[in-house]
Design a protein around this nucleic acid. Structure first.
Lengths: 246, 246
DNA sequence: CGTGTCTTTGAGGCAACTCAACACTCGTGG
DNA sequence: CCACGAGTGTTGAGTTGCCTCAAAGACACG
């Protein structure tokens, strides 16, 4: 396992050039709740952080002092059992918020899947800001509700779908999220490894690999590279998934 | 399947005698956020509803017009696949709130496991009340965060635990929740059927039954009745569960 | 060019599922 | 009072499919 190598944080700094106004996730993240002229207040408490792939952002059990918006890259959120079994509960994409479910301490570990950039906010100052701008609070609640729905979708996938169905629905969700970010639906880019996918879907890497092969042999997808999935027959893939992705 | 028999609501009425002040879940439910003298506002929009076992409270897809606090009994929240496979994502106990994750329409079906009593609130009036009492809003957000954490715990259980481990952790969680309600920890009362447990843990009823037998033969539990579980060796049961319940 | 990581594929075993039968409880009605 | 049927839970036998173990290919990096 490579991700145990480092728990160090990346370099932090007041972002010199990238202002919130020009941010790539300005319309997706928490900040979407604020008007342009209100952004300064958020930017004043914001610290931009770059983090390398496989590095830990926050660790389960640590005091929850900062919350984050992911602006680029990808994070995995996971819980680990004493014997090493791991369950990834979510992949965070740009615009997503880190710290939604946590109370006084983080209850899951967050690691960067690839090099990522985060906006960090001190919890205390964020709380003050939410009192000042109630819409910020409302937006955060909405994002928590969305996360809850996603977690419950995941429960269905983990509990009742067969391996191929799990993978099909996973690919469709990724495809949808790519589309939401303005990228094309079809060549789905898998930033995570097969191990990550397995630990997200409750499978072994071998079963994940075999499921990819099955979908490929059925002509539903193509795999030009291991991390590039071309969706050939979306309708059939949806049928295999058993569920209509939200 | 018996639960398809009825989608009718129980009788609704302004509760004549039971006032919020004397409510059994006054300190656990949303209303815990309000002072005694503020309760009247909540009670004014509240409609108490009795619902029989197996009856549907809200159905997936319906417009979310009312939200509820469960005051007695038990609900199951579930999603169903077109082919009949079912995943129960949560069991709601007295004090729990129904409608946390939903936006404009319910995204899961809620059914009564046993005869239950609910406090119903029109969404529009509840929203107005939350503006008037910000603490109500905060409390609801906190409950959503708790639900999110529970859903993520469930993801771990579904994705990475073996059947016996799943059942052990399920029993421990129920035991804990009983204790929170002031009841004894040990004879855990299982209001739901084996089918419900199976659909919650991602197993078949036979595997659930065999797992009960395994725990019993190992001397960790006793089963005087099918719905009564005496926890004999809590430490060993926790070890089997693999996780420390929150 | 060797080393390490990641992915895929193959072979075999075991555990959970499927199918089936039986025990038990609880109503209902003869 | 007992026979009967429906619903629920347990147990057994057999099968399927996922996991385990193993190996080889692909690729990046030093």
């Amino acid at each position: 396992m490579a991700q145990e190598q480092a728990a160090t944080s990346g370099r932090s700094y007041r972002d010199p050039c990238g202002v919130c106004l020009d941010c790539a996730v300005r319309r997706q993240a928490v900040c979407a709740a604020l008007e342009d002229h209100e952004l300064g207040a958020l930017q004043a408490i914001m610290v931009s952080t770059r983090i390398g792939a496989q590095q830990t952002v926050v660790e389960e059990g640590q005091p929850r002092r900062r919350v984050f918006t992911l602006t680029s890259g990808m994070l995995r959120l996971y819980t680990m059992l004493p014997d090493g079994r791991r369950q990834i509960t979510a992949f965070l994409l740009p615009g997503d918020y880190l710290g939604l479910g946590d109370e006084s301490s983080y209850d899951q570990t967050a690691e960067a899947v690839v090099d990522s950039v985060l906006c960090g906010f001190p919890v205390a100052e964020m709380d003050r800001l939410m009192e000042r701008y109630p819409r910020l609070q409302l937006r955060l609640n909405q994002m928590t509700r969305i996360a809850l729905r996603q977690a419950r979708d995941s429960q269905l996938i983990l509990g009742r779908l067969a391996p191929v169905e799990k993978l099909a629905s996973f690919l469709l969700v990724l495809s949808e999220r790519q589309a939401e970010s303005g990228e094309p639906e079809s060549p789905v880019h898998l930033a995570m490894t097969r191990t990550d996918i397995a630990d997200y879907l409750g499978l072994t890497i071998e079963t994940v690999s075999r499921s990819f092969t099955k979908l490929r042999l059925q002509g539903l997808i193509q795999l030009p590279e291991a991390h590039q999935v071309e969706i050939i027959d979306r309708r059939a893939l949806t049928a295999v998934a058993g569920i209509t992705p939200r």
